[in-house]
Structures are given as structure tokens and as C-alpha cells.
Amino acid sequence: MLKLYRIKILNLLCYQALQLINLFLNRKKIEYQHNKLLIIRLDSIGDYMLFRNFIGEIKKSKKYRDYTVTLCGNILWKDIAESFDKEVVNDFIWIDRRKFYGNIFYKYKIMRSIREKGFEIVIDPTFSREILYGDSIVKVSGAKEKIGSTGSPDSHSKWKRNLLTDKYYTKLISSSKANLFEFNRNKEFFERVLNEKIEIEKPFIDSSKIFSDKIPVSEYYIVIFPGAKHLKRRWSVDSFAEVSGFILNEYNLGIVIAGSEEDYQLAEQIIFKTRANKCLNMTGKTKLNELAKLISNATLLISNDTGAVHIAAAVNSSFICISNGNHFGRFHPYPKEIFDKAYYIYPPEIMNNQDNIELLKNKYRFSSELDINEIKPGTVKETIKKILG
């Protein structure tokens, strides 16, 4: 409870700091740059993977084809954006979310820089709009036209947006009330912004453009991705180790464990428990663009519900996703018409109700407290057999 109050107080202080910065910067008149567009996207890797293909649609649209496009993004996915999207983005502004939240000098520097660029139009397509991030940058930009989404119907945040930040926008694009898959949600948003039909049907990236001597291309392997931001979305080390041992015993395949630097100890524990020398720990050793290449060359990815599965879908690689069902319908499972090589394994309560998808989409739309470790390694092994034979 004390932690919750602490977070609320910190959020209030951050909000007040943003208001003061905006008030200070507002004193100077903006010199607008004609045909200059800012797109804001500050959420996670998976969110970006399900959004990024629409930047090209903006760039070639009748409405904005003569505009220079600047992308204000989360520095977490800088590598993948600058590797694959520099042909459709003229300039990038990178934001470290932790610094932006906690460092008032960093916050001021970023916000002043954005305001001084004189953007004519700003678009924040984020469905789960964030008052302390995207909304505040929209406000300080001072753009003539500010376009956003009416946002998620999650009652926890909707009333705050309605009260505080809806007024920052000159135009809010209405969103379907249905629980849409995120790629389809983005498509709906941009079709309404551009007033054009968008033809792309699934996320994609061309990993053939990436060359790296870090990628073990000389052998067949499966990628294991054991990390996750939140503990409730992280399957146990013992379970990953058991599945890894099964793969090594049953198939002539190597194991590559991938992830961030924070996942290094998880990977070492899996390797220790597996007791095999065909496991390679590459956590913290690949940039995101190299991770895309690593996954594209793999026979299979086995991962918690992270951005790795969305990278796999974009490079057309089969994956098994182990999930507790959080945000069911929005980020998973992939609709078959978008990607048909995705295999999801959930706790029994969800697996036993697969014939009632609408029930699951409503029940776990915003969150799930189901225990991911109710998923047994045997279920994952059977799925591997189904895929690999």
C-alpha cells in the first residue's frame, strides 16, 4: 500500500513538473515549419513492431506525402527502428523513459528541443495514451494540429485522460469499442487519420539486411527467451530448463538463450540445470536488429509474452508463446489471417475455454492474475512435437 501511495505522489510531482516546463516554454512564440510532421510512439518493443509498418503508409499517403517525418520514440527500440525504418523516417528523437520520468533537466531538454523544431502537425497513435509521456509531449509541441486516439476504455486511466489531457488535442480519432488485435487497432486509426484504405495485412521486416558475426548461422537451433518485464509473465527457470533438456535429447538442435543483460542470470541458471554444452548464452550480446536476424534464422522461438514473439511474427518465424493471458485479444493470440505460425500456451483456465474466445477477450482484456507456472512443461513439449514432428 505504501508503495502505491509513493507512486501516486511521484506521478503527481512529475505531472506538476511537466506543467511548469510547458508554462515556461510557452512564453516563446513558435516558428512553425511548413509540412513538418511529428509522430510519437513511446511504448514497448512489441507495441512498436505492431505499429512500424504504418509509417510507410503515412509517408506515401496523399495527405502527408510532402511532409518530412520525425519519429519520437522509446530508446529501447532505437536499433531496430534505425535499421529498418530510416527509409521512411527523416529524423529520430529518442527518449529514455526512466530519465524523462525522474530527471527534470532531461525532461526540460527534450521538451524544449521538440518545441523549437516547430512541427506543424503531431500525431500520437497510442491507444493506451500516457499523460506523463505522449500526451505531455503533444501539448508542449505547440503544433497547429494535434491528432490522437480517444484511447483505451480502461476505466482506471480513461477518466484521467478525459479530465486532464483530451483538451491537448485538436482532433481525437474514435476507436472501436471491440477488443481489437493491436495491429488491427493501428490500422483502424491510420485509415481514419488518412481517410484512405490501407492494404498491408500483417507486420513484416526484412532481416536479410542485417549481417552480424554474432549470429550462429552454421547450425540449426531454437531460441529460448526466458525474460519478461513483469514477474507474473515470466515462466520458471526450472520449466525452461526441462523443455531445453527435452529439445537437446529429442532433436539434433542447439539452444540459443537470448534476452537483455538483465536476463543473463536466468540464462545461466537454465544452462546449469540443463547440464548440456549445446546451450549458448547470448543474453545482452545482441542489439534488437541482430535479435531479429537471430530469430529469423532459428527453427523455433520459445518465449514468454514479450516483444520477441512480435519480432518472430514480423520475420515469419514460428514461435511458442507462454502467457498468463494478460491483455488477451489485444496483443495475443495472433489472428490466423495475420500470422498462422504462432502457438500460444496459457494456464488451464484459458486453455479449457478456447472455444469461447469472446469470453476470454472480455475477462482478460486489461489484465490477468492467473499463475503462469500452472503451465506444465509437458504441454510445451507436446506443442514442440506438433511443430517439429
Rank of each mutant, 00 (worst) to 15 (best):
V223K: 03
H230N: 11
E268T: 03
K214F: 12
F211C: 06
N249A: 15
N249E: 15
I215A: 07
T274L: 02
N252K: 06
D213T: 09
N249L: 13
E191G: 01
S212W: 08
Y221R: 02
K214C: 07
G284Y: 12
E191M: 03
D263W: 03
E250I: 00
D206V: 07
E242P: 00
W235K: 04
L180M: 13
E188N: 05
K177N: 13
S260I: 03
K202V: 10
Q265F: 13
E262Y: 02
K177L: 04
T165P: 03
I247P: 00
E250H: 09
V243P: 00
K232Q: 13
R233A: 08
S174Q: 13
S236K: 14
I173M: 11
R185I: 08
H230F: 15
Y264D: 14
D206C: 09
N179F: 01
R185L: 12
I222P: 01
Y251L: 11
K202H: 14
G245H: 00
V217N: 12
E191L: 01
E250K: 08
E250M: 06
D263E: 14
M282E: 08
P216F: 10
E290V: 06
T274V: 02
W235T: 01
S260P: 01
E290P: 02
S212Y: 12
S207D: 15
K177W: 02
I222W: 05
S208D: 11
V243C: 03
F240S: 01
T170Y: 09
K287I: 08
Y264R: 07
D213W: 06
E268N: 09
S208Q: 06
E262D: 14
N277S: 14
D206S: 10
I255W: 05
F183H: 05
T283F: 06
N162A: 14
